[in-house]
């Protein structure tokens, strides 16, 4: 039992990482109907930025905050420079653009930082703590706290501030919002910025365990896509819940089902994506949209 609880907690920690990236994907999909396949690579680049800051002697938490700020700016820039011209293009075209961005950012990271694998420090010690016979790692608890903290902050921003209302309005109905005086273009750019911030959190949280290299976010992206699809692609709450669930599920499967182990985690995520899309494309929390003919 103790072992089981331990697996659940460490599953929640990786689940929080998946949920952050899944939320980033949902945020952009809600606003623009586009799935940003480059979200993982954007997260990877921001993690390299954090690594560079830390490498230059900046303290971990200062680097963390600076990286989030830079990620926001980077997300806005990517939207303005690359995605904005495709605002009215078919979704398929915009998706191809994000694939172009994916390849470009991957190459950029290899160019600037080389493909050599780098160790990324963790903010939390790996010291185990014992709570009534169950041994938790401080690292797992910290990762859970950071991911959920960022998600809560974002929720507060969307729910309780005027900017948040404008952001939601711009995503919900751009034409009406524009008439009501909401600067829709700027809000979409801000949405990309916030998504990049979420991605940066997931990158910095996952890097200590998978190590930093230009391809480190590929599996995380697939899990995040699975979580986003499972949660309904349009539902932030769905992405959060599905992300955490997926983290726990994959961890338990890995620990207790020999056949799955660590090799078959990606195919499990694939199976989840296919099953949800085929059986219930709206996911667990999404709403079924009527299709315009």
């Amino acid at each position: 039992m103790a072992d089981f609880l331990q697996q659940v907690v460490s599953g929640l920690a990786t689940g929080g990482i998946y949920a952050s990236l899944a939320l980033a994907i949902v945020l952009i999909h809600r606003a623009t109907r586009v799935v940003n396949f480059a979200q993982g690579e954007m997260a990877m680049v921001t993690t390299y930025v954090a690594w560079t800051l830390i490498d230059h002697g900046v303290s971990y938490w200062l680097s963390f905050v600076l990286t989030l700020a830079l990620a926001f700016v980077g997300g806005v820039l990517v939207h303005q420079a690359v995605m904005r011209p495709f605002q009215d293009a078919p979704v398929v075209t915009a998706v191809m653009v994000t694939i172009g961005l994916f390849i470009l950012l991957n190459g950029l990271a290899a160019w600037i930082w080389s493909s050599e694998v780098k160790a990324f420090p963790s903010a939390f010690s790996t010291r185990p703590i014992d709570v009534g016979g169950v041994v938790f790692s401080l690292q797992d608890l910290g990762v859970i706290a950071v991911s959920l903290g960022v998600v809560a902050g974002l929720f507060a921003l969307f729910r309780f501030t005027k900017a948040g209302l404008a952001l939601r309005a711009a995503a919900f109905n751009p034409a009406t919002s524009r008439l009501a005086g909401v600067p829709v273009g700027r809000m979409l750019a801000a949405g990309w910025g916030l998504a990049a911030v979420l991605g940066a959190v997931s990158g910095m949280m996952v890097a200590p365990s998978v190590f930093l290299d230009p391809n480190m976010m590929r599996p995380v992206l697939l899990y995040a896509l699975a979580a986003a699809v499972l949660g309904g692609l349009d539902s932030p709450l769905g992405a959060l819940v599905a992300g955490l669930l997926l983290g726990v599920l994959l961890n338990l499967l890995g620990a207790y089902v020999d056949f799955v182990g660590t090799d078959l985690r990606l195919p499990v995520a694939l199976a989840i994506i296919l099953a949800v899309l085929l059986v219930r494309p709206a996911g667990l929390f999404g709403s079924v949209a009527a299709r315009r003919v």
């Binding site: 109907r33 697939l222 990606l266 694939l270 994506i273 085929l278």
Partner: peptide
């Protein structure tokens, strides 16, 4: 056949997932 039920975006998601996961299937 299942792809018929998927819109352009969903098919992109599904096929991307296949591309990422397929090497693991081959390994296993």
């Amino acid at each position: 056949v299942p792809a018929l039920r998927l819109t352009g975006l969903h098919l992109a998601l599904a096929t991307f997932a296949i591309a990422v996961a397929f090497p693991s299937v081959l390994k296993k």
